[in-house]
Amino acid sequence: MLKLKNVTKKFGELIAVNNLSFQVEKGRIFGIAGPNGAGKSTVYNLITGMYSCLGRIEFEGHDITGAPPHKIARLGISRTFQIPHIFPSMSVEQSIGVGNRFGAGGRYEPGYVNNIISILNLETVRHQGAGELNLLGKKKLMMGAALATRPKILLLDEPMAGSNTTEIMALMELIRKINKDMGISIIIIEHFMKVLTELTDTLLIIEAGTEICCGDPEKVTSNPIVIETYLGEAYAQSNQS
């Protein structure tokens, strides 16, 4: 449903994304990993129209290259940000309502907003100011607002970063639920390899904006080049033992 063809992004001299092509199938969970500064978040910014780029991006057969972010959101591509973005002047419920009103659904449905709030377990804080939430709360709120847009595909940028093991387990459960029960395709950027191998159907590893390897997560994580450039020997050994 989402296709990138020879996409390149330069920031001056720096090539952040280098001739990257990949495809995400409907209903799947697609993972992206790679070292810091590999260009993962930049890929999201290209897909969601935050930056212009070379190459071609297609969504459900339509060319969306160069379309403005709000149009892309209304087509059904929704995202979270690596650093929490929130609306400090709004409550949790209002923030989620914004996604609902302006997103792909295009109208405010209180029932749907309630549903999102309960899926994300935000009932107790629904009337709290978005700025008062802790890091996990803010990340969940971002997911909630993104989900409220009624997306066809959801792009998550390091949703687990800064969470403990229990929280990670809960987030994985949540992501599965969003994928299976709500029928939303997902792309997830994450550093926790275990999360990616358990969760995703396809895994893409990039380094310096270039694809290293893409395919079945088990195969990708045992690929020698991936181990050398990203995972390191320690990971490979810990997995064997």
Binding site: P68, F81, I86, M90, G99, F102
Partner: peptide
């Protein structure tokens, strides 16, 4: 509040 977030939600 946040132009990027607003845009990503369709505004």
């Amino acid at each position: 509040d946040s132009e990027n977030l607003a845009a990503s939600l369709g505004i």
